[in-house]
Amino acid sequence: MLKKLFALILIGGLGLIFFQLYNQRSRREGLTKTASYYTEKGPAETRSANIVTSVVVTYRGLDTLGEVTILFAAASIIGFFLKRSEKGSKDKTIRNQSSELLQTGSMLLVPLIFLLGIYVFVNGHLSPGGGFQGGAIIASGTVLAFLANPSFEGGRTLIHILESLSGMFYVGIGVAGIFLAAGFLDNRIFPTGNVGSFISAGAIPVIYSIIGLKVGAELSAILYSLRDTKEQQ
């Protein structure tokens, strides 16, 4: 009871701080300096129609690299913790078969979901979407494959290959930017083209595709690890 009271007092104090912050913020009509630089110069410099994409991939590309690294670290930690207990008990886990409707439907749907994911990250510079969304959609396809066939094992080696190769290519393209263009992860190492056409924005579609493959592979690896944990004894 006392604990709940303390929690309420803490939340009340936080609410007061939030309210003060909200009251004292300066009401602005336009964008901040950084944001107006990105929106003004972004389409002209990077030739990417989606300004959020140009911020994520080019202007703040180093942050995105760090973020992908965090994802890789999380997938490694989960693989490390869950892999150990899995080896001996693999044979005795009994997995229920799912219905025939789900199995047949998933055979049609899983490739289409993968295709949608690839479409989303290949078009990341033109429309809403990009590597993170496309990767998450690909991982959702993996979930459907698991639901249809609980002992689905395909693509394990593919995941490992994609995990390693996409990270290497990401850093490689970034380093190529130092030599061929203005700096690390500069997208102008390829011809930039016109805003709005599919082949445009230089390296942005390539980098976002790599991010998409990487995110999809990492999330699928996490799902594989979570599925294969040993049943409670």
């Binding site: 809403p128 969304q133 998450a136 959702s140 979930v143 799902l223 979570l226 944990t229 409670q232």
Partner: peptide, 28 residues
């Protein structure tokens, strides 16, 4: 913010829920 909306729909309500359910299945 359509970009954020796509991410939240795919990750927050899709994958995150699935991960919670996978862990819940282990904890009876």
């Amino acid at each position: 913010a359509p970009d954020v909306a796509m991410t939240e729909a795919a990750i927050g309500s899709g994958l995150s829920t699935v991960m919670f359910l996978y862990v819940l299945r282990r904890i009876k």
